[in-house]
Amino acid sequence: MEQRKKIHPHKFTMWVGIASIVMMFAGLTSAYIVKKSQANWTTFELPVIFWYSTAVIIASSVTLWMALKAFKLREMIKYRSLIVSTLVLGVLFILLQIIGFNQLWENGFTLTKNVSFSFLYVIIGLHGLHVVGGAIALLVLFLKAFSRKQRNYDSVPVEVMSTYWHFVDFLWIYLLIFLIMIK
C-alpha cells in the first residue's frame, strides 16, 4: 500500500494565504487595466528608488535562501548572520519604498488628485503591508535564533518564512513590471 506524503499544516496554511493574496492582486491589477482606459487617467513615472528597492528585496531573498540552507545543515552561526542580513535588507526595502512614496507625494501624486494615483498607492501599499508582515515574521525568527532557551532544529518555520518571503519578492517584481508596462 502506497503511503501518501502529507503537507505540514503550517505550509498548507501559508499556501492558502498566498493563493488569496494572488487573487487579491489579480483583481487589483485587472481593475487597474480597466480603469486605465478612462479619459481622466494620468500616466506617471515611478521613482528610480523603486529599482533600488527591487535589488534590495532580491538580495534579501538570496540571504534567506542561504539562511535556510545553513539552518538545515545546523550551521547556526552562519544562519544567525544570514537572518540578521535578511531582516536588515527587509527593513531597508520598506524604508526605500517609503522614500519612493514620499517622492511621489512631493511631485503631486496625491490620493485625491487622480484615480490612477490612488491605484498606485493601494497596490504598492498593500504589497508593503505584506512585506511588513514578513519582516515581523523575520524578527520572530531572529529572536528565536538568538534565544538561549530554545534549541529547536525544526526547519518548518524557516521553510514557511522562506517561501513567503520569496513570494513577496516575486510579487514585487511582478508589480513593478506591471506598473511600468501598463502605464
Rank of each mutant, 00 (worst) to 15 (best):
E2Q: 12
Q3A: 12
P9M: 04
P9F: 15
H10T: 13
K11V: 06
K11I: 11
V16D: 10
A26F: 14
G27M: 01
G27V: 00
L28K: 04
L28W: 13
S30C: 05
A39N: 06
T43D: 12
V48G: 13
V48P: 11
Y52C: 15
Y52E: 09
Y52V: 12
S53H: 08
T54K: 02
A55Q: 15
I57T: 00
V62S: 07
M66H: 06
M66Y: 14
L73R: 15
L73P: 01
K78R: 05
Y79P: 00
L82A: 03
L82W: 02
I83H: 00
T86C: 07
V88H: 10
L89C: 09
L92F: 11
L95I: 10
L95W: 04
E106G: 06
E106S: 15
N107Q: 05
N107W: 13
N107T: 06
S116H: 07
S116A: 07
S116W: 02
S116E: 07
L120V: 03
G125T: 07
H130V: 02
V131P: 02
V132Q: 01
G133M: 12
A135V: 08
L138G: 09
L139V: 06
F146N: 11
F146W: 06
K149F: 06
R151A: 15
S155W: 10
V156Y: 12
V158R: 01
V160P: 11
M161G: 07
W165F: 13
F167G: 09
V168M: 00
F170M: 08
F170V: 10
L171F: 13
L171Y: 01
L171P: 01
I173W: 01
I173R: 01
L175C: 00
M181D: 03
